[in-house]
């Protein structure tokens, strides 16, 4: 592997500016979401086939114990993934527009706007989920 953190490297923090940070975070969040997707497919498939305790029972378990089922973080895992999905999707839409040539001069502003929207979406979903958790 090349020395990716050399002084002259684009990935050396001293050479990195906002757009490069956005690129790195997009990559890392993308890789995390592949991991999340595979665990999500596995969990849903196993639950729907009744391999654990049945889908409905598992959903109620999540509602009763929002952060831990059987010692593993469950709902917190999904909520963190949701925030990362919001970031990755909105930053991705911004990248599609930049590739098409729209808003290239405003790329910093559009980054911060997409971040604000991602935080707003995460906050709204957590707000929607709170009554469910309390009543569970």
């Amino acid at each position: 592997m090349r020395k990716i953190f050399d002084k002259s490297s684009d990935l050396n923090p001293r050479n990195m500016r906002l757009g490069m940070y956005a690129w790195v975070i997009q990559r890392i969040s993308g890789l995390y979401l592949v991991f999340f997707m595979l665990t999500h497919i596995t969990a849903i498939t196993q639950a729907s086939l009744g391999i654990t305790t049945g889908f409905q029972a598992q959903v109620f378990d999540v509602m009763r114990n929002p952060f831990y089922i059987g010692g593993s973080p469950a709902l917190a895992f999904d909520l963190i993934a949701l925030g990362i999905i919001a970031f990755h999707g909105l930053n991705g839409i911004r990248i599609v527009f930049l590739d098409l040539g729209f808003g290239v001069r405003k790329h910093r502003l559009s980054f911060w706007i997409s971040m604000a929207v991602a935080i707003a979406i995460s906050a709204y979903v957590i707000f929607l989920g709170l009554p469910l958790l309390k009543s569970g």
Binding site: I41, T42, I44, T45, Q46, S48, L49, F55
Partner: peptide, 13 residues
């Protein structure tokens, strides 16, 4: 494989 596995899980649902 992931697609087939997912379809297999969706089937009963």
């Amino acid at each position: 494989a992931g697609f087939l596995f997912g379809v297999y899980g969706f089937w009963p649902m």
